[in-house]
C-alpha cells in the first residue's frame, strides 16, 4: 500500500533522513521507533507531502505521491496525525471533525464511529478545540483524521504529552481501528505501546533505518532493549 524507496529529506538543503526504504502492506500496523531527533517527523512530513523530499520515491497504492502537495495526498486517503496537532483552535469540536471529511459532507455514521471511539469528544461537541485538554486535543486530531475514512493512518507520536493512562487508552483505540482493518503507520518513542499495537517495526536512528523485524523480534533485539526499553 505504501512503498518508500530511497527517501532523503530535510530542511534548508540539509538532509535529516537519509535513503530510507520500507513498505507498509494493506491492514498492517507498522511502528517506526526512534528517539527524539531521529528523523521520524521529517520522514512522515515527507511522506504526506508537507515537505518536499530531496531524493527517493513514495508510492501510495502504486501512485507516486512524492511531488504532490499535502492536500492532494490527504484526498487520496492517506491521513496524517501530526504530533503538533494543527487543530483549528477557535472552531468547535464538531467543526473540526466536519472539516476532516472535506470536501464531502460529514457522514453521520462516520461521526458516530469517531464519537464511539472517543466519547469525550461527544461531550465537548460545541466547545472550541483550543479549550480542550491535551489528551482531548489528541483524540480530536485522530478523530478528525478518521472522518475522511482514510485507508492509511499516519500517526506521529500520538502519545505526546499524554499521561500514561491516557496513552494506553489512545493505543487501545488504535488497536480497535486496526482490528477493523485500518492500515496504520505510527512513529513512537514509547516503544512498548507501539510494539504491542504493531505487527512489524523499524528502528530509525540518526535519520537511517537501522533494524527491521516483527514486533516480537524487535522486542527481543538487544539494541532495542538497551536503547528504548530500558533493559540492560
Amino acid at each position: 500500500m505504501l512503498d518508500v524507496v530511497g527517501l532523503s529529506a530535510g530542511y534548508l538543503g540539509q538532509d535529516v533522513v537519509h535513503d530510507v526504504s520500507f513498505t507498509v502492506t494493506e491492514s498492517d500496523a507498522v511502528a517506526v521507533i526512534g528517539s527524539n531527533g531521529a528523523g521520524k517527523t521529517t520522514l512522515f512530513r515527507a511522506i504526506c507531502g508537507l515537505l518536499r523530499a530531496s531524493a527517493g520515491t513514495v508510492r501510495f497504492d502504486g501512485v507516486p505521491i512524492g511531488r504532490r502537495r499535502a492536500h492532494a495526498v490527504a484526498r487520496l486517503g492517506l491521513a496524517y496525525v501530526p504530533a503538533d496537532r494543527h487543530l483549528f483552535p477557535n472552531m468547535s469540536v464538531a467543526e473540526n471533525l466536519d472539516l476532516g471529511a472535506y470536501p464531502r459532507r460529514p457522514r453521520k455514521e462516520r461521526r458516530d464511529l469517531v464519537l464511539d471511539l472517543f466519547p469525550r469528544l461527544a461531550e465537548r461537541h460545541r466547545q472550541a478545540a483550543g479549550t480542550l485538554s491535551g489528551g482531548e486535543q489528541q483524540m480530536l486530531t485522530v478523530g478528525r483524521a478518521l472522518m475522511s475514512n482514510p485507508r492509511l493512518l499516519l500517526l506521529d507520536e500520538p502519545t505526546t504529552g499524554l499521561a500514561p493512562k491516557l496513552a494506553a487508552e489512545a493505543y487501545a483505540a488504535l488497536a480497535a481501528l486496526h482490528d477493523q482493518g485500518l492500515t496504520i503507520l505510527v512513529a513512537e518513542q514509547q516503544v512498548p505501546l507501539a510494539l504491542e499495537l504493531a505487527d512489524r517495526g523499524y528502528v530509525l536512528d540518526d535519520g537511517r533505518l537501522q533494524i527491521s523485524g516483527s514486533s516480537a523480534e524487535l522486542a527481543e533485539s538487544p539494541v532495542v532493549q538497551r536503547a528504548y526499553l530500558g533493559i540492560l
Binding site: 499535502a70 492536500h71 490527504a74 501530526p82 494543527h86 487543530l87 472539516l99 476532516g100 470536501p103 475522511s148
Partner: peptide, 11 residues
C-alpha cells in the same frame, strides 16, 4: 486558523 491543519484535511 491553521494552514497546515487545513492541508491535512484535503483543503
Amino acid at each position: 486558523e491553521d494552514e497546515v491543519g487545513a492541508q491535512l484535511c484535503g483543503i
